[in-house]
């Protein structure tokens, strides 16, 4: 019962911050501004949900609450793709401007990369999931080296374009891209429903899950693909927000103190939406766009992560 109360509280909070986002300082041109804001809001809700669920699944699979799926190198790959496009085609090139093509290219690269990574891992028996992550992280560093090499060479004006890409942004998201992302997300989430009942058991660890009759390899492989697609969609849509998932999923765990994924899925998605929309209100009206939401979230999420690490030992 208390779970229900908390969920309702979160829904109210989400509604309040969404309303705030939509109507604060709307001004006279509301018939122009409102649809713009609605579009932005849709992007926020979509991204927030997708990242929260992907991180929750990922942490359950890895049995670890201090990991986030972006670390398998997807963020770095996204930056590499963006930088490469600007580097070779220039900032005026169609691909950077045409968001639809850009979205498709980034998404394609990230999904292919994740699948290749999984393939390498699952070819061998006795896979260690940490090994996969470390491999991804190193490859990510590798991409990062190339990216910063090109960034140093790029002329400062062009660099401004990349700078915009470096930070997740909900501005200027085109409707058709948003629709594309929503459709993919809907399909993936629908597919995920098939595996939801296994999540609680998976959180008990591999051996217990196998003992209880879960086809472990099959399930985990599917779930990892789901995670990769979700994260890729979010990143290609708005850009990298590495630590958002880490932050919101852990807040959801702290709030609800449960292991039940039927609750956690909704809880973390709601926390995520609240964090993003309230954060965006802050950025727009308090900081008046002097900083980026994703920069703040990475900052807060990062500090929270260090806190989590230092607390690990207590119990």
């Amino acid at each position: 019962m208390r779970e229900k109360g908390k969920l309702i509280l979160l829904i109210v909070l989400a509604a309040v911050s969404i309303t705030g986002f939509m109507f604060i300082e709307l001004g006279a041109n509301w018939d122009y501004a409102l649809p713009r804001r609605a579009e932005k809001m849709a992007a926020i809700v979509l991204t927030g949900t997708v990242i929260a669920i992907a991180t929750l699944l990922f942490q359950t699979i890895t049995n670890n609450r201090i990991l986030t799926p972006s670390i398998i190198g997807l963020d770095s790959l996204y930056m590499l793709v963006q930088t490469t496009l600007v580097f070779f085609l220039g900032s005026t090139s169609l691909t950077v401007m045409n968001k639809q093509v850009n979205f498709a290219i980034s998404l394609g690269f990230m999904i292919v990369f994740a699948l290749v990574l999984y393939r390498i891992l699952f070819k061998r028996e006795g896979q260690n999931i940490y090994f996969l992550l470390l491999l991804g992280l190193i490859v990510g560093t590798f991409f990062g080296s190339f990216t910063s090499f090109m960034q140093v060479l790029i002329d400062p004006n062009e660099f401004q374009i990349i700078l915009d890409r470096m930070f997740a942004s909900f501005n200027n998201i085109q409707t058709d891209v948003l629709v594309m992302a929503s459709v993919i997300t809907a399909v993936v989430l629908l597919y995920m429903m098939k595996f939801v009942k296994y999540l609680d058991v998976l959180s008990l660890g591999k051996e217990t899950a196998v003992n209880l009759g879960v086809d472990y390899d099959y399930t985990v492989k599917r779930l990892l693909v789901i995670v990769a697609v979700l994260i890729s969609v979010a990143t290609a849509l708005v850009g990298p927000i590495t630590f958002l998932g880490l932050l919101v999923v852990n807040v959801a765990y702290e709030m609800f103190k449960t292991y039940k994924h039927s609750v956690l899925i909704f809880a973390s998605a709601l926390v995520s939406i609240v964090a993003l929309s309230a954060g965006q209100v802050l950025v727009e009206h308090v900081f008046t766009f002097s900083t980026q939401l994703s920069v703040i979230i990475n900052f807060v999420g990062g500090i929270y992560f260090i806190y989590l690490l230092l607390r690990e030992s207590k119990s």
């Binding site: 992550l133 990062g302 260090i306 690490l309």
Partner: peptide, 15 residues
Amino acid sequence: LVGLMFGNIISSITT
């Protein structure tokens, strides 16, 4: 893995 993530966090604070 933890160390590299820790480094990422420091970087994000730097950013």
